[in-house]
Amino acid sequence: MSVWLKRCGILLAISAALAAVDSVARPTAWTVTSVAGRNDAPPDQATGSPAVAANSPGPSVQPTTPAHTAQWFSDQLSAGAIAIDARPEEKFRESHIPGAIHLPFEAFTKGRPDAIDFLPDDGTTLIIYCDGGDCDASHKVQTMLAQFGLKDTIVFEDGFPGWQKAGLPIETGAAGAQ
């Protein structure tokens, strides 16, 4: 039995060693705080805002405030901001915010999504939305965009349901899909 457990221990130790070496060797280091972005992330002790490491490549966290209403979103779009739809393709095709670029989280599993080429890195605000509520796709896309240097991003927490509820116009079809 002791040999049996020893072998399991060796397998786990090999895995742990490889994980440790890998985490140091990866070209892009990230920490737990760079994964943060949701408002439920542990708050920073001093500021009370979601914690982001000083050297983190994570997003410039701009948590949605009550001022970030659907009308605010609409005004931002009129002022030049770009909407990013992080929902699955079938939902995007069904309906989306006019002019939105489709960029679901799954697109990042194949490397650098082509849609990133359509996103300016000149300070233009990128507003990401999904289904509102507990939908976390927009936060995940926000974190991934930061990995590619696009940090001027805001998550619209109310998501597409909030936009629809406000009676704002919608668009159908695949236009703008990545």
């Binding site: 070209p27 990230w30 760079s34 989280f105 194949k110 490397g111």
Partner: peptide
């Protein structure tokens, strides 16, 4: 399996799924 371009961020994708 996804090529060099995917290497830097691959564990982050899993971390985000894990966190959710």
């Amino acid at each position: 399996l996804g090529g060099v371009a995917q290497l830097p961020t691959a564990p982050l994708l899993f971390a985000l799924s894990l966190q959710s």
